[in-house]
Structures are given as C-alpha cells and as structure tokens.
C-alpha cells in the first residue's frame, strides 16, 4: 500500500508542478499515438468497409488474416520497421530511424488491423440490415460504403478508441524504432520501462498512473462528444 500511495504522490507532484520534461514526454506520446490512429482510421475504415461490401475469391482468408493481425506482437512490428528503416535497410536513405516518424509508422501498422477488422464487422452487420433497402434505392458502390460508415459512426468510434488504447499502451515497437532517446523519442511507456530498470519504482508507477488517467480522459472526451452528437441528431 505504501508503494502505491508513494506512486500516487509522485504522480500528483508531476502533474501539479507541470514538470516540463514530463509535459514533453506526454505531448510526444499523444502526438505519436494520435497520428498513428488518425492514419490507421483514414486507411482502415474504408478498407474494412470495402472488405465487408465486396466479394472476391479468398475474401474469407483475408478476413481471418486481418482479425489475426489485431494481435500483432509490437516487438515484431518494431523489428520489421527497424529493418526497413535501418541505414543498411531498403529505406535507410530517408534517415528516419530513431525519429518520431518511425514510431508513428510502427504504431500505424499495429493499429490498422484493429480499426479495419472492427470496421469490417460493423459495416457487414449494417449491410445485412439495410442492404436490401440500399439496393432498391439504387445506391451505388461508393454511396453504400459512405452511407454505412456514416450509419455505423458510433460503433466505429469504439474501434478507433480500441486502436488508440493499443497505441498508447505499447512499448515494444516504439522502444526499437525510437530508441528511447531523451527529449526526442522518449514516450510515456518507454520512460516507465526505463525508470523501472533504474529501480525507481515509485516514479515508474507514478508515470503509469498518469498514462492511465490520460487514456481515460481521452475516452471520456470521446464519450461526451458521442452523447452530445446523439442528442443533437436525435
């Protein structure tokens, strides 16, 4: 109990004093995970919808793969992106290894399957319900896709939040492609890992509490936004 209360007081201290170093770390975490989720949403939502609405041979296999990739191990994705961006690798000349950009790339790959797989399910369910109607109204392919995505927006928001949770919580990928460089690529999770290795457990746990609070805050914000939108649109 004393460990936890110590962690709580460390966390409160960091938040109340607005420790500039911690603010930088929090900002980077939100920036990297936020951008990764944004990119994954831009690609994953249409991708999931297309997969739900189209028929082609091997579609079942693609769906299974996509669902399985929701559980991609972050270290493996990190390693893959590292090999890609390493100066000895195919995209080495871009000089992106150990930068926030590399971290966004890795997290996008992690989040994409989650968003796409959940979007596919949502759109497929809606299609079952409204397919007949849309067909009789003569709505074309792209029209169907947009209509169903819009119709399922509240469920899709949950998919996006699941993706954000995944990105904000992972440490394996950002550690490898970011390198945990102080002031450049050090995020909440890599800081927690570092402080744990230094044996400063109260600080590590305090940072952990801040991270959990932050993710809760984001979820609360989205929840309230959803409620407001629902009320307005009836």
């Amino acid at each position: 109990m004393s460990d936890l209360s110590q962690a709580l007081s460390v966390a409160l201290d960091l938040v109340l004093t607005l420790d500039p170093q911690m603010l930088g770390i929090v900002r980077l975490s939100v920036q990297v995970s936020g951008l990764a989720v944004l990119l994954a949403g831009l690609i994953g939502l249409p991708l999931g919808a297309v997969l739900a609405l189209s028929a082609f041979p091997g579609r079942g296999a693609v769906v299974v793969m996509l669902n399985a990739f929701m559980g991609l191990p972050p270290v493996v994705v990190g390693l893959g992106v590292y090999l890609l961006l390493s100066r000895a690798g195919p995209l080495g000349e871009a000089g992106l290894l150990f930068t926030p950009t590399a971290m966004v790339m890795a997290q996008t790959l992690l989040v994409l399957p989650i968003v796409a797989a959940l979007a596919r399910q949502v759109v497929a369910d809606l299609w079952e319900e409204y397919g007949e109607q849309l067909r009789s109204l003569g709505v074309s392919g792209v029209g169907r896709l947009v209509t169903l995505l819009w119709d399922g927006r509240f469920s899709l928001l949950t998919a996006i939040l699941a993706g954000f949770g995944r990105a904000a919580a992972e440490v394996g990928a950002v550690m490898i492609v970011g390198g945990n460089i102080k002031g450049v690529t050090r995020t909440m999770t890599t800081t927690i890992a570092l402080e744990t290795s230094k044996g400063d457990l109260p600080l590590a746990m305090g940072l952990g509490l801040i991270l959990i609070a932050l993710v809760t805050l984001v979820n609360a914000g989205v929840f309230l936004m959803g409620q407001w939108a629902r009320r307005r649109m009836g």
Binding site: Q31, V32, T99, T101, V104, M105
Partner: peptide, 17 residues
C-alpha cells in the same frame, strides 16, 4: 515506387517534427 514512398515519408516527417 520506392522514390514515391521516400517522398511521402519525408513530407510526413515534416508534419511530425
């Protein structure tokens, strides 16, 4: 294709930097 990818990544890194 590779050049396009590199260009896209360069552009994108400006946004994150």
């Amino acid at each position: 294709m590779k050049r396009l990818l590199l260009a896209a990544m360069a552009l994108f890194s400006l946004a994150v930097a």
